[in-house]
């Protein structure tokens, strides 16, 4: 990586620099180079399309982790007309890696929760690199319960490498905090939309990931384990992360085929970090559309559908889905 650019982005960045140099030159020397610029821009678009159509799974993971990728609050700034952050789990502390509050999007009132990463070292220490502790998950659930009282939908923004694996996290019941969220979110009596905006790291993502609609940004990923972790365990070699990324079927395109996510939100050409404004516009449109649709559905139907949505997930053979709980004498 150099200057925030990924290896496969190099031809794009080079061409962009050329265009900008040419513009500067043209302004300074008062020479018309619009034809040349136009031709370079066409070339740029072509290269961008080529590079980004053929991205491998591990390249998409790189984009999802891009240091300039828009985070939860970058979207909040662009999408919400109102946001009031609410703090703390009322038990231990306020987790800065998983935050939330009251928000308004296109004059719809919602409860927004999401993982928040840091942009630099200092901020990352505060945000713990977007890795939440149990108190983050407990705060998130507390906010969802408020949403239930207010009868406003919940929108969760998922972007975490995973729930934090640390001593304090274990002492305070990381597993229990996530498990309780999975159970309780299945019953929340208001619409829930989850959108994976960057990294969907395993249980840490799922802990705010139970909803009526699961959206994913085009270059985001969602996986049971990080490609590096998977490679270390199954290949005994972290360097095999590229192969693991392919095998895990973690890209948006794969996930929609498997039926884990419902909708892919397009990113601007070159990835969300190339144009946060456009990425936010696309996300806002998708959220508004889904909020409108979900709000038409009676709550009891919504919650039943939510159960059935996750109930169906899985692949196996043997007894038909219909012939449930067939007894066979074993002893």
């Amino acid at each position: 990586m150099n200057g925030g650019g990924l290896d496969f982005e190099k031809p794009i960045l080079e061409l962009e620099r050329k265009i900008s140099d040419l513009r500067k030159f043209s302004a300074e020397e008062k020479i018309d180079v619009s034809e040349e610029i136009k031709s370079l821009q066409n070339k740029l678009k072509k290269i961008k399309d080529e590079v980004f159509c053929g991205l491998s799974a591990s390249q998409r993971v790189q984009i999802a982790r891009h240091p300039k990728r828009p985070y939860f609050m970058d979207y909040a700034d662009r999408i919400f007309s109102f946001f009031l952050e609410l703090h703390g789990d009322r038990r231990f502390s306020d987790d800065k890696a998983l935050i939330g509050g009251l928000a308004e999007i296109d004059s719809v009132k919602i409860m927004a929760i999401g993982h928040q990463k840091g942009r630099d070292t200092k901020e990352n220490l505060l945000r713990n690199f977007g890795c939440a502790h149990p108190e983050g998950y407990r705060k998130a659930l507390r906010l969802m319960k408020i949403a239930e009282k207010m009868k406003i939908p919940v929108v969760s923004f998922i972007d975490t490498p995973g729930a934090y694996p640390g001593i304090g996290a274990e002492e305070r019941g990381q597993a229990e905090a996530i498990a309780v969220n999975l159970r309780e979110m299945s019953l929340v009596q208001v619409p829930i939309i989850c959108v994976i905006i960057g990294e969907g790291g395993s249980g840490g993502a799922l802990g705010i990931g139970i909803g009526d609609k699961i959206l994913i940004l085009q270059n985001a990923y969602y996986s049971v384990i990080s490609p590096e972790g998977c490679a270390a365990i199954l290949w005994k070699d972290r360097a095999k992360a590229k192969v693991a990324a392919e095998a895990l079927r973690l890209t948006a395109g794969d996930l929609i085929k498997i039926g884990i996510v419902d909708e892919i939100v397009a990113e601007p050409s070159g990835g969300a970090h190339r144009d946060a404004g456009e990425a936010a516009d696309n996300l806002k449109k998708a959220l508004v559309k889904n909020l409108k649709e979900l709000q038409k559905i009676p709550v009891s139907t919504l919650v039943r559908n939510r159960y059935n949505k996750f109930r169906k997930m899985g692949a196996y053979e043997g007894e038909e889905n219909g012939s449930k709980n067939k007894k066979s004498k074993n002893q």
């Binding site: 990931g209 384990i225 498997i258 997930m313």
Partner: peptide
């Protein structure tokens, strides 16, 4: 969760918890 079934495994966490 079983890595070989990737997100399908992950979703079993959701399924079993919702049943509870």
């Amino acid at each position: 969760a079983r890595m070989q079934e990737s997100t399908l495994s992950l979703m079993q966490m959701a399924k079993t918890s919702a049943a509870l």
